[in-house]
Design a protein around this nucleic acid. Sequence first.
DNA 1: TACCGATGTCAAGGTTACTTTACATACATG
DNA 2: CATGTATGTAAAGTAACCTTGACATCGGTA
Lengths: 63, 63
Amino acid sequence: MRNDVRELRVDKGLSQSDLGAVLNVSRQTVNAIETGRYSPSLPLAIAIARFFGHAVEEVFHVD
Amino acid sequence: MRNDVRELRVDKGLSQSDLGAVLNVSRQTVNAIETGRYSPSLPLAIAIARFFGHAVEEVFHVD
DNA sequence: TACCGATGTCAAGGTTACTTTACATACATG
DNA sequence: CATGTATGTAAAGTAACCTTGACATCGGTA
């Protein structure tokens, strides 16, 4: 499971902490997702995709 | 989190057990998702959506 | 130098997702 | 009636997700 969260976040000029605040999760959670330590839950994945204006499958790729 | 898994599954003439086999999860997991006991993991949600030929957001709806 | 924002990561703990095993109900068919 | 298939659900265990708190590094800037 790779994803484009970091790229999308940086393009928006946001810190991991900023994005965490938007999504109501901790900055550590954002970091773990970006660095691939684990996949987000489905509700969180949908929230992330929606925030960036993409479909879930466009942001999260099965390897 | 509601979803259309049951409807999609029944339309294909599959049992919960059949779908579990396709997705490599137990029939209890399929049942739990259909009955809304919990949301699937992101990889499983993507596998489900892909199997039915839909986007994740089309199958799983934030309430 | 000293400070600060951003990032990476760890530990400990709570909750959710998933497993196997098991038992129950309902329905169809021999 | 007896059997088989499909479904619902529970219990107990493991793994994954997510939290707070903490510590470290790096780059910029006063």
